[in-house]
């Protein structure tokens, strides 16, 4: 309960002013964002702030259902960040040096969250990759939903955070951020169908972005 209050307080007092005033969102289709699980939000990954922007969009009373699946090597990197990530953000840690054992552990945790009607926030590209460039989509999400009939996957495309806070800097420069939310997808026949439909959805959503990408991405990639 205390953790839930912490999360609401953090989002209301720090995250929302930061995201809506210092940055600024061009949100499309906000009403599609799921507020009740089981559901998965599958967003592209540009910056560590991706998670923060998505959390800022949640209605406060549904906030506790949002569970970011976030990289352990960053979000658990030291004691303070780890406390913040587990108690305030309530993340499900993802170990990127996957072996069979911790991969099974991650799946268990994700399934448990979905069983409790929570909403997973996942970045199917894995790492942040080059700013504003969609990387290769991985199949982890498919493994999560293949045996669930009632768990839609919501593709979300974000653009602008790669400019506001690119890799390796701490200076957050104000830029508007596009957040384009797609309709929930479900009923994938096989991993290939999943990949195809997600790629098509990302391509369609990207067309609705209005902020510009960096002109020199080939040099800063």
């Amino acid at each position: 309960m205390l953790d839930r209050l912490l999360k609401v307080g953090f989002v209301l007092l720090i995250l929302r002013p930061l995201v809506f005033i210092w940055l600024g969102l061009n949100t499309v289709n906000r009403q599609s964002l799921p507020t009740r699980g089981p559901a998965i939000i599958a967003a592209n990954h540009n910056s560590h702030l991706d998670v923060m922007v998505l959390l800022a969009l949640f209605p406060l009373r549904d906030l506790h259902r949002g569970r970011p699946v976030a990289a352990a090597d960053y979000f658990l990197s030291n004691r303070y960040i780890a406390w913040f990530s587990t108690h305030v953000l309530n993340i499900i840690p993802l170990d990127r040096n996957v072996d069979r054992h911790n991969s099974a552990e991650l799946l268990t945790q994700c399934h448990k969250a979905l069983d409790e009607d929570e909403i997973l926030i996942i970045f199917p590209e894995g790492s942040r990759g080059r700013p504003e460039v969609m990387g290769r989509i991985k199949k982890g999400v498919y493994r999560l939903v293949q045996e669930r009939s009632n768990c839609p996957v919501y593709p979300v495309v974000m653009r602008g955070l790669g400019r506001a806070l690119p890799r390796g800097t701490a200076r957050l420069v104000p830029f508007n951020v596009d957040v384009v939310i797609g309709e929930g997808l479900s009923g994938f026949e096989d991993p290939e169908a999943y990949l195809q439909r997600m790629r098509a959805a990302y391509a369609a959503l990207t067309k609705l972005c209005i902020t510009s990408s960096c002109v020199d991405r080939e040099r800063n990639g």
Binding site: P131, S212, C214, D216, N220
Partner: peptide, 10 residues
């Protein structure tokens, strides 16, 4: 935000 610029211009 709408004009394309270089990352170094930040």
């Amino acid at each position: 935000s709408i004009v394309p610029m270089r990352l170094v211009d930040r």
